[in-house]
Design a protein around this nucleic acid. Structure first.
Lengths: 148, 148
DNA sequence: GTAGCTGAGTTCGAAATACGAACGCAAGGA
DNA sequence: TCCTTGCGTTCGTATTTCGAACTCAGCTAC
């Protein structure tokens, strides 16, 4: 199976993994969650080639993760890329990555950014929980069964 | 900046994003969390080319996400790839992807698998919470500030 | 009007990656 | 001795990515 055909794989973990597992896509989403919205800014901050940037933005537009929104600048109409509701729902994925990075990949030189809850000032972390009892779960607590 | 040099980017979200954002890596991790452990089985279930599989496994070994563990089969010593503690801690990332996939990418044909809490049988989902007050957070609830 | 600037792409030849079929190799078994 | 298995490595071809140059539309200044 060529990589591209995972887009149609019948698995709700496999399809997102294939979509976000394309080179540059996760880094692009990181920029977007940090507030970058314009083609030129993506290009400048990530040093991605323009043609690949065009391609990745188009894929995310097609998937409905991003939308193009017109805005005005010095009287001209331009467009910026913004998250849709679907895209905004990727927040837990990004936070899970960051929580993992903080625990396992942190170095002295990291100077990224702080995140805190607007209301109470607390920290932010991703976790997995049981929808019934609310317990926090690890891989060991979870049983995998084939779907009927 | 070529993609590879994000490996040294001073950001605890950027580095994991670059590592897992390499083609095949997320799909490989999915297989691993589903229980695949041997080279041949990865190759067969994902139809990845052998050389790329070798490369990705080596990267994950080097990063300490996987380890090679010897085991016996018909008297011969072989090796299998297993998650380290660091690797097992990627579980929330996978569950966040799946939670998102279930919500936004589910189709009729999906026949992947069920997950449930061993103790109480409940469902499984990823979420982001405040480390102080425990509230569930979305992107809008979180303030981003440059690190001092 | 026209020359220049800017944001947002598009094009294209060269370099890096991925593909897949064939090969290598070590350890058992027939 | 030869065959099979698991696990890679090699190598020529096909696909992606790179980066510099080009395009194009809508101002702005002259």
């Amino acid at each position: 199976m060529p990589y591209a055909s995972f887009a149609s794989m019948p698995c709700t973990l496999g399809r997102p993994a294939a979509l976000l597992g394309e080179r540059w896509t996760l880094l692009l989403l990181r920029q977007i969650f940090l507030g970058t919205r314009r083609f030129e800014d993506f290009q400048a901050t990530m040093e991605i080639s323009r043609s690949v940037l065009t391609d990745r933005l188009n894929v995310l537009l097609q998937e409905g993760v991003l939308k193009r929104v017109p805005y005005q600048e010095d009287g001209r109409t331009r467009h910026e890329y913004r998250l849709t509701d679907k895209g905004r729902d990727l927040y837990p994925v990004m936070m899970a990555l960051r929580t993992w990075g903080e625990k396992w990949m942190a170095t002295e030189e990291d100077e990224s950014f702080h995140l805190h809850h607007r209301d109470c000032g607390g920290g932010v972390r991703a976790k997995v929980e049981c929808t019934d009892c609310g317990a926090e779960l690890t891989a060991r607590d979870v049983q995998v069964t084939a779907r009927p």
